[in-house]
Each structure stands twice: as C-alpha cells, then as structure tokens.
Amino acid sequence: MVTPDPKRGRFDAASRRLREATVAVGVLAALSLVVPGDSARILAVLALLILGLVPLVRLAWLGLRWARRGDRRFAWLPAAILGVVAVGFLVSLR
C-alpha cells in the first residue's frame, strides 16, 4: 500500500495549463475548418502556433525549475534543445 504522497500535486498546475492548451488548439483548429475566408487561415495558424510553442514553453519551464533547484547536471539540457530548434528554424529560412 502506498502512503499519502505530499508531493503528489506538484504538477497539477502544469497539467491544468496543458489541458487548457489542448482544448484551445482543438477548438481553434476545428473552427478554422468551418469558418469561411481569411479567418479560417488565421485560426489555423494560431492553432499550429500554440501547438508548436507549448512543448518549447514546457522546456523553458523545466530548465528554469531545475536551475532554481540546483540540478546542474540537467538544467542546461532544455536550453541546448531550444538552441537546436532555433538554429533549425533560422537555417530553414535561408
């Protein structure tokens, strides 16, 4: 039997934000399929933008969280991955 875990709720706030982002992306994408004209394109771009940004924001959050807690072995990893994504995007623009 597992004893009550005082740290059990430590990711609840982040979990809620992720659920809200999922609903927002789903609603925006669905609306883009039914509204006419340029509005559809704007809504779809917004949905894709949120979809692409959520994992990157989560990365940044993890990096800051680990840095604040002194986990130096892993705190640099999110920044390195964000760097890879940024370099890839910049190179693709050329």
Binding site: V25, S32, A44, L48, G52, L53, V85
Partner: peptide, 30 residues
C-alpha cells in the same frame, strides 16, 4: 512533442505547411 515542434519550425520556415489539411489532421489527432 518537442521533435514535432523542431520539425514543424523547419517546415514552417520552408513554407511547406498548408493550413487547411494541417488543421484537419490536428483536430483528428487531438
């Protein structure tokens, strides 16, 4: 999710993402 972001950033930079099919796939995937 991170791999998808990294790849999509490149595809967006190359202008290879068409919004209507992408939105349709996104709704289905979610």
């Amino acid at each position: 999710g991170i791999t998808a972001s990294a790849g999509l950033a490149v595809f967006a930079g190359q202008g290879r993402i068409e919004t209507e099919p992408a939105a349709a796939v996104l709704v289905g995937a979610i």
